[in-house]
Design a protein around this nucleic acid. Structure first.
Length: 306
RNA sequence: GGCGGGAUAGCUCAGUUGGUAGAGCAGAGGCCUGAAAAGCCUUGUGUCCCCAGUUCAAGUCUGGGUCCUGCCA
């Protein structure tokens, strides 16, 4: 047991709801293990969204090497598949350095660890064709009954995705599930960082107030002035989209700020629901001195690291 | 002080010709195979402000209180 049993790369995964305090712990952990950080965050991947996505500060980005932060233009769409591809590449290139994968996008972490079915990319032609489909759920029932069975008729996003895959490939999305999964197998140590609900909600509220104080509105103003639009993927982000009515002079700043806080709280709740069914090696309560706890566990379970 | 409007779920409010009440939001729980900070589902017994009256029956009508609120003074 003196070394990693196979060549499977070792990764630490740190997850938790928004505003719980993941970044600080990740920095400490990376420093202790001599590792680097990969952000598993569907919003921090965008450039120019600094304040509202609570990106690490420049000093922090300098102290520890970070990946997948600010790499994408807000006009570009991103996806779980793309995340997995990029993360895998970074991990293999950097091996045997230890990546600390930190982020609140649970789906990305799951996709990286458990793999995604190998589903063909969606074509532009399919998108154009989809625009002509009237009753989408009925169409999906006809074309991919297996998927339709699993979806609620109101679940527009997944119905759309199912149809796009069918229109692109000519095969039902569900037919790809059985196929081999593109699993990059890792020896992962998964940590969940939690906080008491009430306290988490209070932190979220305070964080939004602080974002405004730190110049969130100016940041949005600059984005708009640079030609970004509210319909761009990057701006479809909690902490940004709620301020559209303010910039369009339809609602007061207070109203928009309250909505942003509300949406963040709802988001945190959804994250917590997601994490409940994910298996973690260690669940920690934020606020205490968690670094030693993680390190001692690793010393026992992954002695070759030390 | 005068003339109005209102008092119903944590919040904002609906409630039809009287038959013991319902939406949105919040809260809570859940789903999730390339938009996941997205998308979606489930979940509402509360002194209908108080007292008295009419009535088989009052959130709903009548009278009297109390407290908000708008305009005029």
């Amino acid at each position: 047991m003196s070394q990693n049993k196979s060549s499977t790369p070792f990764v630490v995964v740190l997850q938790g709801p928004t505003a719980v305090g993941k970044s600080d712990l990740a920095l400490e952990l990376a420093a202790s293990l001599g590792g680097y950080i990969i952000s598993a965050d569907s919003r921090q991947i965008y450039s120019q969204l600094e304040i509202g996505t609570a990106k690490p500060k420049p000093e922090e980005l300098k102290a520890v090497e970070h990946f997948l932060i600010g790499e994408l233009d807000p006009k570009q769409a991103f996806s779980a598949g793309e995340f997995v591809r990029r993360a895998q590449q970074i991990i293999s290139k950097r091996s045997p350095q230890i990546p600390i994968i930190v982020g609140g996008t649970g789906f990305y972490c799951k996709a990286l660890l458990d793999g995604l079915s190998n589903i063909p990319a969606v074509s532009d032609a399919a998108r154009r064709e989809l625009a002509l489909v009237k009753n989408r759920y009925a169409k999906l029932q006809e074309v991919d009954p297996v998927l339709a069975e699993k979806l609620h008729p109101n679940d527009s996003a997944r119905i759309e995705r199912g149809l796009l895959v069918y229109l692109s490939s000519g095969k039902p999305l569900s037919s790809f599930w059985q196929q081999e999964q593109a699993v990059g197998s890792y020896d992962a140590f998964s940590v969940l960082l939690l906080r008491e609900r009430q306290e988490l909600y209070e932190r979220i509220n305070l964080r939004l107030d602080k974002m405004i104080a730190d110049g969130l509105l100016q940041e949005i103003q600059e984005l708009l002035a640079s030609g970004y639009e509210w319909s761009d993927p990057g701006l479809n982000t909690v902490g940004y989209k709620e301020f559209q009515p303010f910039f369009q002079k339809e609602k007061s700043l207070t109203e928009c700020l309250e909505k942003a806080k509300q949406d963040s709280r709802n988001f945190a709740k959804r994250q917590l629901t997601w994490y409940r069914k994910i298996k973690f090696d260690l669940t920690l309560s934020a606020g205490s001195d968690n670094l030693p706890t993680i390190l001692s566990r690793l010393q026992i379970e992954r002695p070759w690291l030390f």
